[in-house]
């Protein structure tokens, strides 16, 4: 896929955080949350990012949303480098990429009515919109996410968790964005409600042609939603490829372990034995970051860091043995 045809193209994204000082006069150590991540997203499709806590997937979401500046690298949206834009120009672009968060309790201001919350992105995107038109847009969005019209005058705490996540979707869609970054959008929801929200997201994708950057720790959810999947480990993409293929035949030992760790419903009650990934120590600098936990690690893995390389058409993996 060429960079020109992609909606989002990230190139060498790196993000360091400075940790609190060690001791009173000690240095402030750096934590590399994201380490040279590159990928491209095709319009109208879903790009899934899988990883465990600390893998850098939420940092990636914030960088793509230009809510933080990277320590290195670029994010191009429709070919434009977001971090090269002036603050005003960036603000004007924001209507084209919106975000949905994990916790629907925390992502809606408890002091505001639903109408205000859903219309908030319009405050900046279309400040001159007459009040009546705003109302109509909110009503449209509520209908689109399957909520009754009278929800507009309610407060967030008067709605259930699933309804609140629908509100978050309505807010994200109100400016008709091209991209929605969804960071664990269904993880806080009950199973039955999770299915409702996933169905809604897929229906909205069909009717409104939005592109999703879908971030989750849940492999089954990502496999269900995403066309393309990137697996992250310690701030890097370790494997990437078409969702179905990648999860059916994982090439990287970490992806294999992730897939194997998912409990299998079909084997319920049989006490199936499986390989369990051990905890490892800190990786050796210059070696593969996964080596300390890897069941296949050899001497070479501790001395030579494998690059993310093409292993088959459309598939990449960062492993010497892939």
């Amino acid at each position: 896929m060429s960079a020109a045809a992609s909606l989002v193209a990230a190139e060498g994204l790196t993000r360091d955080y400075r940790l609190p000082r060690v001791g009173v006069l000690g240095a402030r150590p750096r934590l590399r949350a994201l380490d040279g991540v590159s990928f491209a997203m095709s319009p109208g499709r879903s790009f899934g990012v899988v990883g465990e806590s600390g893998s850098g997937k939420s940092t990636l979401a914030r960088l793509v949303m230009a809510l933080e500046r990277p320590s290195g690298g670029t994010v191009r949206f429709n070919g434009e480098d977001l971090f090269a834009l002036s603050p005003d120009a960036l603000r004007a672009r924001r209507r084209f990429f919106q975000m949905v968060f994990q916790d629907p309790n925390g992502s809606l201001d408890p002091r505001r009515r639903i109408e205000w919350i859903v219309a908030e992105p319009l405050d900046v995107a279309e400040p001159d919109l007459p009040q009546a038109d705003r109302r109509a847009r909110v009503a449209d969005m509520l209908a689109a996410v399957g909520l009754p019209e009278d929800a507009a005058q309610r407060f967030p705490h008067e709605l259930s968790g699933g309804q609140r996540q629908r509100i978050a979707l309505a807010r994200a869609l109100v400016t008709a964005p091209a991209l929605i970054v969804a960071d664990e959008p269904v993880s806080a929801l009950d199973v039955s409600v999770q299915a409702q929200v996933l169905n809604l997201m897929m229906q909205l994708q069909e009717t409104r042609a939005v592109t999703y950057l879908f971030i989750s720790h849940n492999l089954a959810v990502v496999e269900h939603v995403a066309d393309e999947v990137a697996v992250m480990y310690r701030g890097r993409i370790v494997e990437q490829g078409p969702a179905v293929e990648l999860l059916a035949r994982p090439a990287h030992p970490y992806t294999q372990a992730l897939v194997d760790a998912v409990p299998d419903l079909a084997a319920a009650g049989t006490r199936r034995r499986r390989t369990v990934l051990r905890d490892g120590g800190e990786p050796v600098p210059g070696g593969c970051p996964f080596a300390p936990r890897c069941p296949r690690a050899e001497a070479r893995c501790r001395s030579e860091d494998p690059a993310l390389r093409a292993i088959a058409p459309g598939r990449r993996a960062a492993c010497h043995f892939a």
Partner: peptide
């Protein structure tokens, strides 16, 4: 630190406006 602030920033609101409104 709440997510609704992040949502307001994603909408392009200024720090001053977020302070007043949220």
């Amino acid at each position: 630190s709440r997510d609704f602030i992040l949502a307001a920033r994603a909408a392009g609101k200024s720090t001053f406006r977020i302070t007043l409104e949220h």
